[in-house]
Write a protein that binds this DNA or RNA. Structure first.
Length: 591
RNA sequence: GGGGCGGUAGCUCAAUUGGUUAGAGUACCGGACUGUCGAUCCGGUGGUUGCGGGUUCAAGUCCCGUCCGCCUCGCCA
């Protein structure tokens, strides 16, 4: 070893010992006769002092050290003594008085310094990811990620789950997200697809008798990116046989609690609260509400159907909805300009045509449109929304889905802007009873809400012919801090029911055989009842680190246009490679 | 595909209504300094203002196009 200790572990108890450290120059302070180097590794920072009269041959080296040089230092651990202690460092009571030192590697002047408080733009950080990753905040994120995955493995190991890997080179299925394709050299003109998830494999593992499976699985989806979405990401993938919905939920309750304990030192209270899909859509306008704060949506459609305010009245008459939020003590928080521009603009991105608002003043509504509502209507609205003087009431009048999307977005904005919650809290809830299918207006057919292998709620089997939109699925989402943090379902385990679903989704038996034949075939050979779930590991790490960006919890993430700025990927390839694959490019004309 | 924000020294930023030689901090280079920890002090180097056009006596600034990064709508079974 080139070191005897790390830069984070020396303290007053080591005084007098001779130790060797190795690390990066985090900071240098050259006083002529004495040079101080803050030596950094991922364990911490230790100050090295070079007294230049003691040994002249290290003088030149000590004074030549610059940011990010890699050095090895041997010396005596000495107490810094009164007045020289640095309380900001865990190692601040001591320093290593260098007796000898060796430059292990000189660094070019780095484009930015890991210790800097102001970060350079993200383009540069991604290009020099190896320097960005030296920053203590990112190192901390990687450590939290490690802790979480270890907690996951320990938890499942304790329950006799097997960790089983599934292929990366798979087969394309037209449903769902766009696939990443890999051309086959051997099979001319054919392509593998990278897995969007190990969904079909894990079901087949159940048929194969591996009744408790998990995997920390890489998944790939060729869709546009977001702050919480990368083209390649990691799922904690779980499947269990001989279980019912309740068993999955309680297993995952335990997992999430164990994850929380591993990072935060204490378990989460379980069982985690449960809501129905209908309930959260009504109350929060989204299937992934952030319940670190309340701020519920109220529906006042019935109260304003007969008002003189045309917008509200006509909306209700068209069978649509007037819904809104009561923002406590916010009457003076947002100016008319902010309401009319910023907040209206916010709901506008979700299709809302306007944002109506009132202040509650002297027990009445106060705004330019208040005159269209009589006393009785005003009182009813205030009462419905539990309004009090000083509150701000805001409304969106639109279709159900637009009012949901707009108010959910507004609610999230307000929660953050008004600091309605503790940002370090981890708040989880289950959302149950999703609809099995949703009507696709464009394609004139039903689409699977979760995926086509999802079992039906036993009470709703009767709706297949009468009203498929009413069928509830045996599916469940785990929502955490407003993110979809896990999603799963009990699966269909007999081919006949599976075909019934395919019929509903307009997938013919021939289509089904073509696309999922291998699964259908497996189901015919003794498939046990089974179900599972997948957790988005990156998002969980992000929540536990308190971050809002998934790139900060992935060692080598991609940009919004899915490129790796460090690697320069994707890249063009050699003509010969294309020839081997029988691929000819047909690129759009460059202007 | 749509909307928004950004790109000026290695880095973080500034630059009035379009007007002198594009500045500051930091880094870097040289010098001074024996107790600093954002060390300090003195001096210096460093610019294709993302790229390409255009308007103008004059463009970092205005116009058109384009590239890159971020946020977002659509998209993500």
């Amino acid at each position: 070893m080139l070191r005897t200790k790390t830069c984070g572990e020396l303290n007053a108890s080591h005084v007098g010992q001779t130790e060797t450290l190795a690390g990066w120059v985090d900071k240098y302070r050259d006083h002529g006769g004495v040079v101080f180097i803050d030596l950094r590794d991922r364990y911490g920072i230790t100050q090295i002092s070079f007294k230049l009269d003691t040994s002249s041959d290290i003088q030149e080296l000590a004074q030549s050290l610059r940011y990010e040089d890699v050095v090895q230092v041997t010396g005596t651990v000495v107490s810094r003594g009164e007045g020289n202690i640095n309380p900001k460092l865990p190692t601040g009571e001591i320093e290593v008085a260098a007796a000898s030192a060796k430059l292990l590697n000189k660094s070019r002047t780095p484009p930015f310094e890991p210790r800097g408080e102001t970060l350079p733009n993200e383009e540069l950080r991604l290009q020099y990811r190896f320097i960005d990753l030296r920053r203590p905040p990112l190192q901390r994120n990687m450590m939290i990620r490690h802790k979480l995955t270890k907690a996951v493995r320990d938890y499942f190991d304790g329950l006799e789950f097997l960790e089983i890997e599934t292929p990366i080179l798979g087969r394309s299925t037209p449903e769902g997200a766009r696939d990443y394709l890999v051309p086959s050299r051997v099979h001319e003109g054919s392509f593998y697809a990278l897995p969007q998830s190990p969904q079909l494999f894990k079901q087949i593992l159940m048929v194969a008798g591996y009744d408790r499976y998990y995997q920390i699985a890489r998944c790939f989806r060729d869709e546009d990116l977001r702050a919480d979405r990368q083209p390649e990401f990691t799922q904690i993938d779980v499947e269990m046989a001989f279980v019912e919905l309740e068993d999955i939920l309680s297993t995952i309750d335990g997992l999430v609690s164990a994850m929380h304990e591993s990072v935060r030192g204490k378990p989460l209270p379980t069982p985690l609260p449960r809501y129905t899909h209908a309930e959260v859509m009504e109350k929060y306008g989204t299937d992934k509400p952030d319940l670190r704060f309340e701020l519920p949506i109220s529906n006042i459609s019935d109260l304003v159907a007969d008002s003189d305010f045309g917008v509200f009245k006509n909306t209700v008459a068209d069978g649509n909805f007037v819904r809104g939020l009561c923002i406590k003590e916010a009457a003076d928080k947002y100016s008319r300009r902010v309401l009319d521009n910023d907040l209206k603009g916010l709901v506008g991105t979700y299709g809302a045509k306007g944002l109506a608002y009132f202040k509650v003043t002297d027990g009445k509504l106060d705004s330019s449109i208040a005159k269209f509502f009589n006393d009785e209507q005003q009182q009813a609205i205030i009462e419905r929304m539990s309004g009090e003087d000083g509150d701000l009431l805001v409304f969106v009048a639109d279709t159900w889905s637009v009012s949901c999307a707009a108010l959910a977005a507004l609610r999230n904005f307000l929660g953050k802007d008004l600091e309605l919650y503790d940002p370090t809290e981890i708040n989880c809830l289950w959302v149950l009873d999703f609809p099995l299918v949703t009507w696709n207006e464009d394609e004139n057919r039903y689409d699977a809400e979760h995926h086509p292998f999802c079992a039906v709620h036993p009470d709703d089997v009767g709706y297949f012919e009468s009203d498929p939109g009413k069928i509830r699925a045996q599916s469940y989402d785990l929502v955490c801090n407003g993110y979809e943090a896990a999603s799963g379902s009990i699966r269909i385990h007999d081919p006949a029911t599976q075909q019934k679903i395919f019929d509903l989704l307009n997938i013919t038996p021939e289509d089904a055989e073509e696309r999922f034949g291998f699964l259908l075939n497996a189901l015919r050979y003794g498939a046990p009842p089974h179900g599972g779930i997948a957790l988005g590991l990156d998002r969980w790490v992000m929540m536990f680190t308190g971050g809002e960006n998934i790139r900060d919890v992935i060692a080598f993430p991609k940009t919004q246009r899915a490129s790796d700025l460090m690697l320069g990927a994707p890249s063009e390839v050699d003509k010969r490679q294309l020839r081997d694959l029988h691929i000819k490019l047909d690129l759009p004309e460059q202007s």
